[in-house]
């Protein structure tokens, strides 16, 4: 009896604290454009993904995992498709007005391994959110990638890896369902070698994601 009462009190306490929390989880349709080294190495593809978000007071955390099968576009010198699996994690802290600070990581693995560069980096940036209307929100984010690591080696200058994003959410069914749209553009000015052998081998990816999430 005492255990049941304690359990009930814990449940009530948890329910009370949940009132300040919001979360969502859902699937995404992903489509993207990937370029590497030169305009000739150009891929386009599509795939699927999952995304989840959790907000508690001023803190927010978002994570998404996308798998895109990139195929060479017509006219590209590439001949083999590859599959990119990208993990994005962002932690957000509300600062003031529409502005929040974001930090996180990005990790993209390519298969087959040598068809494209696998990348890992730490991201930091700023996000501006604005409510367009009841249940409709949009956000614009920009940031930089630090400490980029590539499967094929290479380095990036301090301001060489940039990213830009645009996202929107539309609540439906009294906020239980959430239609999401995300755009992520990533430009990494990668260089390999040094001295006279130094070569620019930039990487650029544009990802669009349209998803449906269950909010709680």
């Amino acid at each position: 009896m005492r255990t049941a009462a304690a359990l009930l009190s814990v449940l009530f306490a948890a329910a009370g604290s949940l009132a300040a929390q919001h979360g969502s989880i859902g699937g995404q349709v992903v489509f993207g454009d990937y370029r590497e080294v030169s305009a000739d190495l150009h891929y386009r593809g599509s795939g699927g993904g999952v995304a989840a978000s959790f907000t508690y007071k001023k803190l927010g955390i978002e994570g998404s995992l996308a798998s895109v099968t990139y195929d060479p576009v017509a006219g590209s010198t590439a001949t083999v498709s590859f599959k990119a699996t990208q993990l994005d994690i962002r932690a957000r802290y509300y600062i003031t007005g529409p502005v929040s600070a974001e930090v996180g990581i990005v990790n993209r693995k390519a298969k087959p391994e040598f068809e494209a560069q696998s990348v890992g980096a730490i991201r930091a940036g700023v996000r501006m959110s604005y409510p367009l209307g009841p249940g409709v929100n949009m956000g614009l984010r920009g940031g930089m990638l630090f400490g980029s690591k590539f499967s094929g080696g290479g380095t990036v200058s301090g301001v060489g890896a940039l990213e830009l994003g645009l996202n929107m959410t539309v609540d439906a069914m009294k906020g239980r369902l959430r239609l999401t749209g995300d755009y992520d553009f990533q430009r990494i000015a990668r260089t390999t070698g040094s001295g006279p052998g130094k070569a620019n081998v930039p990487i650029q990816q544009a990802l669009g994601r349209i998803g449906l999430a269950v909010a709680f």
Binding site: R35, S38, A39, V136, P202, A206
Partner: peptide, 23 residues
């Protein structure tokens, strides 16, 4: 990056178009 040719606006266009429709 200029080395990679003209940028692809397909992804930004789809999401931006959706955003403008919502707006």
């Amino acid at each position: 990056s200029g080395d990679l040719g003209s940028a692809s606006f397909r992804e930004a266009g789809v999401i931006g178009g959706g955003l403008m429709a919502a707006g």
